[in-house]
């Protein structure tokens, strides 16, 4: 039996980690956001943010494109996860889905530059079927395509696990009570795998808010998101205060998403009073 007064020692690595890599950076960003470019204390950064159409436009852009990416990712991932969970060699298929996440995002981005370029394989195909070549790279669609591709594994994984955890007897019970496959899906399978969908949305939407490398390399800066703005302020204009302010806005957006998607309690269906 360990002594009671030594138990807190086991918590040290955890609290060190939280302190150094979570609390301190967030605190620094918040602190930084109250200083202007000349290191004077100011609230002007926030005033600028909420009064300038540009920043609000960027915010709307970020949220809109993150929503689109999340939507398309979910649209592809749910059926994919569902089919995979019913396959014979499902672990192998899962591994194949996860494999691309081990490759650096920049490498994947450059690979897509090759694929989408004027002489790339995508345009060769379009030429072959007689509708190309076209401008693919540096368009909004190509940005959405690549962002969705990159996010898919992070959406599939939690949904796949949720579907595997679903006891097949729920499906049998639903069928037994007269439900068709479609009714079984909407009334039983979907609500019971919703926690997996919510985790997937968290894992995809939040990083998608601040994708900045892809907006530049694939989207050709056609879409300026908050991620791009932060990068610009820190690396180009050297206005760390403004960059931090946008960072704070992003953090708040993330917290809001977490709260929305974290309703752990299973919802009981509507019932007559």
């Amino acid at each position: 039996m360990p002594h009671r007064h030594t138990n807190w020692l086991y918590g040290i690595p955890y609290w060190l980690w939280i302190g150094l890599f979570v609390i301190a950076p967030v605190a620094l960003i918040i602190y930084q956001s109250f200083f202007n470019i000349d290191s004077h204390f100011t609230l002007n950064n926030y005033a600028t943010y909420f009064h300038s159409g540009t920043y609000l436009q960027m915010t709307v852009n970020s949220v809109w494109y993150a929503l689109l990416v999340t939507f398309f990712t979910l649209l592809i991932s749910y059926p994919a996860a569902y089919i995979m969970s019913h396959l014979k060699h499902r672990d192998l298929w899962l591994l194949l889905i996860i494999l691309p996440t081990w490759i650096n995002i920049l490498l994947k981005a450059y690979a897509f530059i090759g694929i989408f370029s004027q002489a790339g394989i995508a345009n060769q195909f379009l030429t072959l079927i007689g509708i190309g070549p076209r401008q693919l790279l540096f368009t909004k669609s190509s940005f959405l395509f690549v962002a969705t591709y990159i996010q898919i594994p992070f959406m599939i994984l939690p949904i796949y696990n949720a579907i595997l955890d679903l006891s097949p007897s729920y499906v049998n019970a639903s069928r037994d009570l007269g439900a068709t496959n479609w009714q079984t899906f909407w009334r039983v399978i979907w609500p019971l795998t919703l926690p997996g969908v919510k985790s997937g949305i968290q894992a995809v939407f939040i990083p998608s808010l601040s994708l900045f490398m892809l907006t530049r390399l694939i989207g050709g800066n056609k879409i300026i998101t908050l991620g791009t703005a932060i990068e610009e302020h820190f690396l180009t204009t050297m206005n760390w205060g403004m960059g931090s302010t946008i960072g704070v806005v992003l953090i708040i957006a993330m917290v809001i998403i977490m709260i929305f998607t974290n309703s752990d309690k299973p919802t009981k269906g509507d019932r007559p009073s």
Binding site: S167, S169, Y170, N172, A173, S174, R175, D176, L177, G178, A179, T180, Q183, R187, V188, P191, L192, P266, T267, K268, G269, R271, P272
Partner: peptide, 30 residues
């Protein structure tokens, strides 16, 4: 779903996202 038999499952298979009422009402609502 078209057979006139019903089953009581070994693990009960009650839908955990529904209340007692909604579980019992499931088949009737369908």
């Amino acid at each position: 779903n078209k057979r006139k038999v019903n089953t009581v499952f070994q693990d009960y298979a009650l839908f955990p996202h529904m209340s007692v009422f909604d579980n019992v009402a499931f088949g009737l609502a369908i």
